[in-house]
Design a protein around this nucleic acid. Structure first.
Length: 241
DNA sequence: TAGGCCATCTGGTCCT
DNA sequence: AGGACCAGATGGCCTA
């Protein structure tokens, strides 16, 4: 671990002069910081007994000067440590602000995703994980619908499937977040839409894997009666800009 | 009160 | 060097 003074001086190097202005008002203190850094923050005792140089104690008043120098060094250290703390704090605050903004953007994107998924009653809102899982399954369902349509469903192709007679959400919301795994699945089965046979039991449906353990067994994979009942929840066909 | 969800803070790592 | 991204920690709010 480096000496405290070395740390703060390295940080002082990257601080602008305006950053310093509030802390190092004494030019002398600023000037003394630099030599202190090269000496690793310790006073230079080796000089004292060097040949040709009289010891501080030998010169009248030298002890007072030495004490004064130490006091000033101490004050400079306190100031530079306060500056270091202030710099770190301001960087942290800025980083927090960026992170907050980043999460807000992420949430906005999730909201946009929710808005193009089949809608639910107004007072309900998919959680983040529900939104992602539902979107994953929904995209697969749409792709599967197109595939089936292209295989020659009676009465036309995909275009017909995308022009439903009515719009109504058909996926009941779980009654409690903690029990969604059971209640949503059973609820979907109890919905009017569930009576229709789903083409999504196709073995080519998204297989559960370790990375993404969702699929037809997932409660969020309830697209009963798709495409007839699911696809006419039209928000998903509104292009998102 | 416990559990789930969420926002925020924080320090570490990676990238430009 | 600074920003983006990530994961862990923490505390608040809500619901059963």
């Amino acid at each position: 671990m480096p000496a405290p003074l070395e740390i703060c001086l390295s940080d002082l190097d990257c601080a602008s002069s305006s950053d310093l202005s509030g802390f190092l008002t004494d030019e002398e203190d600023c000037a003394r910081l630099q030599p202190a850094a090269s000496a690793s923050g310790s006073p230079a005792p080796a000089r004292r007994g060097s040949p040709g140089m009289p010891a501080a104690s030998d010169v009248p008043g030298a002890q007072d000067e030495e004490q004064e120098r130490r006091r000033r060094r101490g004050r400079a250290r306190v100031r530079s440590e306060a500056l270091l703390h202030s710099l770190r704090r301001s960087r942290r605050v800025k980083a927090n602000d960026r992170e907050r903004n980043r999460m807000h953007n992420l949430n906005a994107a999730l909201d946009a995703l929710r808005s193009v998924l089949p809608s639910f009653p107004d007072d309900t809102k998919l959680t983040k994980i529900e939104t992602l899982r539902f979107a994953y399954n929904y995209i697969w369902a749409l792709a599967e619908t197109l595939r089936l349509a292209d295989q020659g469903l009676p009465g036309g192709g995909a275009r017909e499937l995308l022009l439903p007679p009515q719009c109504a959400p058909c996926l009941p919301r779980p009654t409690s977040p903690s029990s969604d795994a059971e209640s949503w699945g059973s609820g979907a089965a109890a919905s009017p839409c569930a009576a229709a046979s789903s083409p999504l039991s196709d073995p080519s449906s998204p297989a559960a894997s370790e990375d993404f353990p969702y699929g037809p067994g997932d409660p969020l994979f309830s697209f009963p009666g798709l495409p007839k009942d699911l696809l006419h929840t039209t928000p998903c066909f509104i292009p998102y800009h």
